[in-house]
Design a protein around this nucleic acid. Structure first.
Lengths: 273, 273
DNA sequence: CGTGGCCTTGAAGAATCTCAAATAATGTGG
DNA sequence: CCACATTATTTGAGATTCTTCAAGGCCACG
């Protein structure tokens, strides 16, 4: 049984953290186990269970129907596999159906810089529009599935539908805004503020997907979190421990329970004085 | 005489750095002094001296002509004045005609985080598309002038011209890529690498605008550079001094001369081992 | 049952920040 | 034109934060 087919946690559910098996809480969406869903089915946005989070977000019936003209395939990606690499020719925009991805760039000296984590309903690859090649690569953190939407089709659709055009530019702009806030994090916050911000962000996105916002399983390693937040993995680990000591979190490896949400929020946004 | 009407430095020109007056080198474009150019003239992209850097970049004749249908006004902004504030309703995309801007967000505790510097031909405000309000504010660092392009017009145009649509989405994507590299800077580089990267980037952009890439005048304070690069103003100052000691730069307040470009590049991209 | 990957923790060291003071440049009002 | 307040910059010294290096534990997997 793959990680994908795990039982989603209902909102407000509360597992005993230490005893809970690894897979009891998943970031992956899994209303239906992927294994039982043949990939050959034509993918239609209007019926998709992710339509309120993904590309169709905010679209109403007349336009939503047009979106179904968009034909694209799905693709499975195993844990650890790359969906695309930095520098590769840009052809598709990818929408996460299930699983979690990281996107990352390679630095000149071989190190890796993680630039984002992506979960169900989020788009990946928009940074490739600029130069026709992917500026960063995407790697699955667990077994995953994506919709591979040809960028050319997307453009055609945008030309024919005002609403679609708006949605597309909004999505790109949202990416810019997202990176803004990460820059703020990296530019002016200390280790505790960064990790608190990261966890709160994760928590919100899980909530929006119907999972518990208080208790979840991290799909990424300490090193990946550290790279994303601009700190070393040891510092990430120490900061987790500090939060546990401050009774803000329960941490058991990658299993996280937010004990004191207000406290964590205060760490993230310290009052002046 | 305003700062705007300063004499542009020819490529390869070389002023004696200490004696040079403040205004001898300007980031602002000033082929023609702004004062002699009536603002009421209809602004046409196809004739603009910035057309190879700005919105029309990469467009050929048939499409370029369509771009002139775009009607928009210009606006003067005095040094220190805001062009727009974070949270304000998003209506216009701004193209810098002359002068330099910073964009910045206010943190919860009142501090400011600079998220970018913008010079002639660059667009500002695209982060407002996401939510219909500006995510960051823009402030002139010197007397400046912009084209205020109604976003709605831009959308109309994009719908009618495939090329225009491509240009627009490229511009947004470029913004994403730009922020990616800043994230890398902030996430995994030390003070010297950051400042070197900043100066090299500035140098390239000035070169693209016909100014000297070796010698220029910074329009922003140490504090603003520090905020942008995620370090304190004292560290910025010390790093400038260190570069001078290493004979990479000549620094005289805001006047910078790059003495050893290769050396600076090596600081920015240290070889593995 | 041993191996490798991931995580935690300690201790020492390095980088950066904070606080403080001196200097220079700028603008203000008399 | 000068005295004065204001701002920007530089530099030093000590404090703090984060990193580096090192060791050990836990867990999954073959």
């Amino acid at each position: 049984m793959t990680e994908l087919a795990t039982v989603p946690v209902r909102l407000g559910s509360r597992a005993t953290s230490a005893a809970a098996p690894h897979s009891s809480i998943s970031i992956a969406s899994a209303d239906t186990p992927v294994a039982t869903r043949p990939t050959s089915l034509p993918t239609q946005c209007s019926n998709c269970h992710l339509k309120d989070l993904c590309l169709p977000c905010g679209m109403e019936e007349p336009d939503l129907e047009r979106l179904d003209e968009l034909s694209f395939g799905r693709r499975r990606v195993k844990a650890g596999e790359a969906l695309y690499h930095a520098g590769e020719r840009f052809q598709f925009v990818y929408a996460v159906r299930a699983g979690t991805f990281k996107s990352s760039l390679a630095l000149a000296d071989g190190r890796e810089q993680v630039s984002g984590f992506h979960m169900a309903g989020e788009l990946m690859g928009l940074d490739g529009v600029a130069n026709g090649q992917h500026a960063s690569g995407a790697t699955a953190l667990e077994d995953a599935e994506v919709c591979a939407i040809p960028h050319a089709h997307l453009n055609d659709l945008a030309r024919s539908s005002t609403k679609m055009q708006m949605v597309m530019s909004r999505l790109m702009s949202r990416e810019i805004v997202r990176e803004h806030s990460l820059m703020m994090l990296l530019g002016s916050m200390n280790a505790e503020e960064r990790l608190a911000g990261f966890l709160l962000n994760l928590s919100q996105r899980l909530k929006a997907r119907g999972y518990s916002s208080q208790e979840f399983h991290l799909r990424m390693s300490r090193a990946e979190i550290g790279s994303y937040l601009g700190m070393k993995l040891e510092t990430v680990s120490r900061t987790f421990s500090a939060f546990q000591q401050q009774r803000l979190l329960d941490v058991d490896k990658r299993h996280i329970r937010i004990v004191d949400l207000d406290g964590l929020t205060r760490v993230f946004q310290p009052q002046s004085h």
